[in-house]
Design a binder for these strands. Structure first.
Lengths: 169, 169
DNA sequence: CTGTATCCTTAAAGATACTG
DNA sequence: CAGTATCTTTAAGGATACAG
């Protein structure tokens, strides 16, 4: 993107994740890798991506430890590392969302375990069981900086303002 | 992005998802919305995003039914719809990945349920229990088009080629 | 405060030719 | 086959001024 902002200041793991895998091609390359694609040319044909773009992405992905390059130098293969494979839940969750809300429950790709049993919709869980989207809470974590902490403080203040402006006036 | 490719041809729910929410700002706006941000100016300050960019994103998000605009026209609030809230698992999964692999297990933001109990790392499950990234399988789904089917066929062929060229030669 | 309208900059995407 | 090197295009991002 043109005047690309540096998101690293945002002190947020989501922003940090997006800095590494946050563009279309990167995510789709990882998807292909999950599917079993290994070769430069196969990625290229599968995605219809220009060679220079693909080369850049693969280099970035190997540099950030998400994929490894192996095999002959003339005809290497690219594979996901553990770091990369651990993106699986996020990828599947994104796919499931698209299955439901964009593909109208008519998934182009089915996800199963190795015995062909469907992977269930991804859910959030805590010690108390399933956590609905409504009941999820966010708060500053151990890695929060001053800006993040004040952000949450202000958020809290705004929440106390809006819903109950009765007695205050 | 400049010469933006039309991913809708890719016949993949991930690509389709990325067409809707697949850029930095959109995802970060949704994150903020999850955190409780509601107002134009708050999004703007929180993210450090230009006003026109924010306006475009909010319009796209409401047009695609992920957020709704409510309240006075002069000072509206933006909230996630169900469609938007269902992105929660994917967002949290992405955050968790960043927590572990980029923020070095020092999360800026902690995610809990409404009783303060930590949300567990997102896992994939099937009728057989937890599904490891290694054992996940993909196959053409009901919505697969001819291109997707042949893609999987070729992938299968390649897999049979590489690992066992013994008897064939 | 919440936008819209402009203008400008720039970097990302793509096409193409070429190399080991 | 797997890239690298260029060149061009273009649209996204940002800044600013202005409006309701």
């Amino acid at each position: 993107m043109p005047g690309k902002t540096d998101l690293s200041e945002l002190n947020c793991s989501l922003a940090r994740t997006l800095e590494v895998v946050g563009d279309w091609w990167t995510l789709l390359i990882i998807r292909d890798a999950f599917l079993g694609v290994r070769r430069f040319g196969d990625f290229q044909r599968s995605l219809g991506i220009a060679k220079n773009i693909l080369a850049t992405r693969l280099e970035r992905l190997t540099a950030s430890g998400i994929m490894t390059r192996a095999g002959s130098d003339a005809r290497p293969t690219y594979q996901l590392t553990e770091r990369g494979r651990e993106l699986m839940p996020a990828m599947v969750a994104l796919m499931q969302w698209g299955d439901k809300w964009v593909s109208a429950n008519n998934p182009p790709v089915a996800v199963t375990d190795d015995k062909g049993r469907a992977v269930a919709p991804v859910r959030l869980r805590s010690a108390g069981g399933e956590v609905s989207a409504q009941s999820v809470r966010f708060r500053p974590g151990p890695g929060a900086n001053a800006r993040t902490r004040s952000f949450f403080r202000e958020l809290e203040a705004a929440r106390n303002d809006a819903p109950a402006p009765a007695g205050s006036r």
